[in-house]
């Protein structure tokens, strides 16, 4: 007699916990052949709110952590993902990819995480400047994370889009609320499990599944979200979100890259989610020891 398979329950990820949606609702995405993939949480506006609260709470200690330590944690994510690559490949195949493409996507995702892990303690050196002002002041500009970043994952991939949009955000010290691909949500939830086992503090990344058109406006208009990034949204939703983002002047970016390409990564994705802070301080005795006081 064949063994009965244990099915995985896909939950959402908020503040380092895996709750079900507070709404109790679910939806069932289908694969290409019309077979149901799983029962997935249909998150609500309140889940978005809870996720933002968790992200805000985590922001202080994540952004103030040493850049080296953030790099260690990101590299740990890559290690954990490598260890579970088979599961991700399975899920990607389940969601319609060929085995070769599934393997390619997982490999690229791991490599991309390693890429951004390396940037953690380097981007600020590249993007900062010491500014030679004319007065007797020392003046420098450095990067600071924007805060809570809302990420509306690219819809056509289950893993690589999410990884490509999330990693530059947390690499730079931001915390994130991620809306997973509505039709291809499996890897997002499994990736949350990877994060949870990778020393990523609870709340740094929060991942919600459900209807993008339902959740995205709440995220876009939330007054405690500092930046919103989207990728390949349809024009009318994109416009609505852009308008909603204005009320607290969220930084709003649309990334148009094809994430499946190896070159679709870079410093600019980190710098877009950084504020530049300029600091001034007087310098005594500029002009040398001989100048009179």
């Amino acid at each position: 007699m064949s063994r009965l398979e244990i099915l995985k329950t896909y939950k959402i990820y908020i503040g380092g916990q895996f709750p079900r949606t507070e709404s109790g609702r679910y939806y069932t995405p289908f694969d290409k052949k019309g077979k149901p993939l799983a029962n997935i949480c249909l998150s609500s506006r309140k889940d978005v709110r809870n996720a933002v609260v968790a992200a805000r709470k985590a922001f202080g200690s994540w952004s103030e952590r040493s850049a080296f330590n953030r790099g260690q944690i990101l590299y740990r994510i890559a290690e954990m993902l490598e260890g579970r690559r088979a599961q991700f490949i399975d899920e990607l195949i389940q969601q319609g990819l060929t085995k070769a493409n599934a393997e390619k996507e997982v490999n690229l995702s791991i490599d991309r995480i390693v890429y951004y892990a390396g940037w953690c303690d380097k981007f600020n050196q590249v993007l900062s400047s010491v500014n030679p002002v004319s007065s007797a002041h020392f003046n420098f500009s450095t990067c600071e994370p924007m805060g809570v970043v809302g990420i509306i994952s690219e819809q056509t991939s289950s893993l690589i889009g999410l990884v490509s949009m999330l990693m530059p955000a947390i690499c730079g010290g931001n915390t994130a609320v991620v809306l997973a691909s509505e039709k291809l949500p499996l890897c997002a939830v499994t990736f949350a499990e990877v994060l949870n086992s990778s020393d990523v503090p609870g709340g740094v990344v929060n991942i919600l599944t459900g209807s993008t058109s339902e959740m995205a406006p709440t995220l876009a208009s939330h007054m405690d979200v500092n930046a919103l990034i989207t990728s390949q949204l349809d024009d009318s939703l994109k416009k609505n979100l852009s308008v909603a983002a204005v009320d607290n002047l969220k930084r709003n970016y649309e990334f148009t890259a094809d994430w499946s390409k190896p070159e679709s990564q870079g410093l600019n994705y980190i710098s877009d989610l950084q504020e530049i802070k300029t600091t001034w301080h007087p310098i005594e005795n500029i002009g040398g020891a001989t100048s009179s006081y």
Partner: peptide, 26 residues
């Protein structure tokens, strides 16, 4: 805040980036 003046205030220079966080613009 985008500009922090320590032991000085309201200093400007062409080489010094100026601009805000949050609702002070981007």
């Amino acid at each position: 805040a985008g500009v922090v003046w320590a032991n000085t205030y309201n200093k400007f220079d062409p080489t010094s980036p100026f601009g805000g966080y949050k609702e002070s613009g981007f």
